[in-house]
Amino acid sequence: MEAISLAVNGTLMRGLALNQNLLNAGATFLRETLTEPNYRLWSINDCHPAMLRVTHGGRAIAVEVWAVPTEGISSILLREPPGLCIGKVRLIDGETVLGVLGEPFLCENQQEITQWGGWRAYTAALKTEKGMRV
């Protein structure tokens, strides 16, 4: 069975809301890594992130790389929130893999969260902030 490396940066990651979509497609976790420092990240209503490749102002974003059976890619994409798509992502080690990206329109009027370096760090900060307000 042929597999494709897929970089995920949000709710498809291990233990998060949509990870079951990867598991149902027969995907296998390979590793945690970073993108090259040319990406920015937005929170889409604090439900999921959207990552875009940029020419200026980017940084490395935390991702997980999964081996996904070729026939499973479409089932994952069809279950992703609207405005997310599959594109090429360059990793910190220079490897290019397929990855989940956001369409630019999706990020309009949303909070940029690039400074946290990833979805897990951002959501951890949200939980800490909410705990401090109580």
Rank of each mutant, 00 (worst) to 15 (best):
R40A: 09
N45G: 11
R90K: 15
I76A: 00
G57F: 02
I73P: 02
S43Q: 06
W42E: 08
G83A: 01
R14P: 08
F105E: 12
L22R: 14
I86M: 14
V63N: 04
L106P: 00
A125R: 10
I92M: 11
L84H: 01
E129V: 01
S74W: 09
L23V: 10
L30S: 11
G15Q: 06
N24W: 13
I86P: 05
F29C: 07
L22V: 09
T28W: 10
P49I: 04
T28P: 13
E95L: 07
A60Y: 00
K130Q: 11
A67K: 05
V63L: 02
G94P: 04
A62R: 12
T114S: 15
L101T: 00
I44C: 07
D46E: 12
L78G: 14
L77Y: 13
V65W: 04
E129S: 14
A27Y: 12
E71W: 12
E64V: 05
C107I: 10
R120D: 12
L30R: 13
I86C: 09
P104W: 11
A25D: 01
Q110P: 09
I76F: 09
L23M: 11
L101M: 14
E36Y: 07
L91T: 11
T11Q: 07
G83S: 04
T55E: 15
W42T: 05
N19F: 01
R53D: 08
M13V: 03
P82M: 06
L84G: 04
L126F: 03
G10C: 05
G94V: 04
G83Q: 10
W66G: 02
R120N: 07
L6N: 08
A50G: 07
A50T: 08
T123H: 01
Q111V: 14
L91I: 14
E103C: 08
L6W: 07
G117K: 01
G117T: 02
S75K: 02
I86G: 09
V65E: 10
A27N: 09
L22M: 14
G26L: 08
M51W: 01
L18E: 06
P37D: 05
T35R: 02
L77K: 15
Y39F: 06
Y122E: 06
L41C: 05
G117P: 06
G58V: 03
A121I: 05
R59E: 14
L16P: 08
C107R: 03
I4Y: 10
G10R: 04
M13P: 10
A67Y: 06
C47Y: 15
R133G: 05
G83R: 00
V100Y: 04
